[in-house]
């Protein structure tokens, strides 16, 4: 009988894994570069320095076109900024508030509780400014793509000259990580686009890894606490499983 249970579990587990496998396959012939992310694995955690650098890359490179509308300035505390620093960062932005006593909307400096302002007023303006393509919001991008972080990293470092056999139309760019290899986003990172205060590498790979790290945090800000509780929960339940099995054996000892 145990064989039956085991076989069933194994086959069901593999059945569950299938859609994921199917998805990876449907990406075509793309092979993603694997990075050694600190947030991967059971004890995964974010690297604050890398996230701060990634935030800088986002601000100086991505934020011109891409919004992050689910992130509030107060969330930057996760990156290791203190309250005063967050206030200073927020104060550099203007957000609309109102109406005031006269019924007028007005602009005021952003406060930590405010969400990060979007570069465009709406999707139509975003399209009009980007050749008709809509730059996606980046708050959840690391979870909204299969193999999120590896994919984002591969995409950012994946700009190349198109092979001679391929004709790339105007306004499109060749990228070896993008499905179909033609992407509307021009290469955003060339290396040395940003000056880091801490002297970390500003190569294409360095900048891409940092901004990916930041985006992963933005998509899954509770990852650290999730894994921390997870380790405790799995430990507790493993003990509980062993104990209940022993207790079952003890109680059933007199049946047969």
């Amino acid at each position: 009988m145990r064989k039956l249970i085991f076989a069933t579990m194994v086959s069901l587990m593999s059945a569950v894994g299938m859609p994921g496998a199917a998805l990876a396959a449907s990406g075509g012939d793309v092979t993603l570069l694997k990075n050694d992310w600190s947030f991967a694995g059971i004890f995964g955690h974010y690297n604050k320095a890398s996230m701060q650098r990634g935030f800088q890359v986002y601000l100086e490179v991505c934020a011109g076109c891409h919004s992050m509308k689910y992130i509030a300035f107060r969330n930057l505390a996760d990156l290791g900024y203190n309250e005063a620093e967050i206030k200073a960062i927020a104060a550099e932005y203007e957000v609309q508030d109102g109406p005031d006593e006269d019924g007028e909307m007005f602009m005021r400096p952003a406060r930590p509780a405010d969400l990060m302002p979007s570069p465009y007023r709406n999707d139509n303006e975003a399209r009009a400014n980007n050749n008709g393509a809509l730059p996606p919001d980046l708050s959840l991008i690391a979870k909204a793509r299969a193999h999120g972080p590896d994919y984002l990293y591969s995409l950012l470092v994946g700009y190349q000259d198109a092979p001679a056999s391929m004709e790339v139309p105007d306004g499109m760019y060749y990228n070896n990580a993008y499905s179909g290899n033609m992407i509307a986003m021009p290469q955003p990172i060339y290396g040395d686009d940003v000056e880091y205060a801490d002297g970390a590498s500003t190569s294409v790979e360095g900048l891409s890894a940092d901004v990916t790290h930041f985006l992963m945090w933005a998509a899954e800000p509770k990852l650290e606490v999730r894994k921390r509780i997870g380790v405790a929960a799995v430990f507790f339940l493993s003990i509980f499983l062993i104990m209940s099995y022993l207790a079952k054996r003890r109680i059933w000892a007199d049946v047969y």
Binding site: F236, I239, F240, M243, S244, L246, A247, R250, I251
Partner: peptide, 12 residues
Amino acid sequence: RDFIVVATYAMG
């Protein structure tokens, strides 16, 4: 009333 049984229910 065995220890292991009581402990299991307590853990639950």
